[in-house]
Amino acid sequence: MNDSGEQTPSSESEAGLDDPVYRDAVIDLLGAIAYGEISAFERLADDAKLAPSLADQVAIAGMAAAEFGKVAALFERLTSLGAEPFEAMAPFRTPVDQFHANTAPADWYEGLVKAFVGDGLANDFYREIAGFLDAETRSLVVGTLEDTGHAAFTVERVRAGIASEPRLGGRLALWGRRLMGEALIQAQRVVADRDELSGLLAGGVDRPGLDLAEIGRMFTRITKRHTGRMAELGLDS
Rank of each mutant, 00 (worst) to 15 (best):
R177M: 09
A59Q: 12
A61N: 05
P95V: 08
P208R: 15
G149K: 10
P9F: 01
L174P: 00
T103R: 01
A55D: 13
G209F: 10
D107Y: 13
Y22H: 12
V71L: 12
D3F: 15
G36Q: 12
P9T: 02
G209E: 09
L179H: 01
F99L: 15
G118V: 10
E165M: 07
S237T: 07
S198N: 13
A51D: 04
P166M: 01
V142P: 01
V190P: 02
G161Y: 09
M180F: 14
R77E: 10
F99V: 06
K114C: 06
N123R: 12
A59G: 00
G62W: 13
L172G: 03
L145Q: 13
A72N: 09
F116M: 08
L74D: 01
K224P: 04
T144S: 15
G62D: 14
L212C: 04
A45V: 03
K70G: 03
D147R: 10
G169R: 11
D47L: 13
Q7M: 13
S53C: 03
G204C: 02
P166C: 01
M230I: 02
T94K: 12
T8D: 03
M89S: 01
F116V: 08
D24F: 00
A135Q: 08
Y109M: 12
E6D: 14
L210Y: 13
D211W: 06
P9E: 01
V26F: 10
L29K: 08
L29C: 06
S198R: 14
P208E: 13
L78G: 04
D119Q: 07
L210S: 07
Y22N: 04
F132H: 13
A73F: 03
L44D: 11
L74C: 04
Y35A: 02
K114P: 03
G62F: 14
T8R: 12
S11Q: 03
A90W: 04
E67C: 06
F68H: 12
G169P: 02
T223M: 09
M180S: 05
S80F: 06
L145T: 13
L29M: 11
P95R: 05
A90Q: 09
E87S: 12
E67F: 09
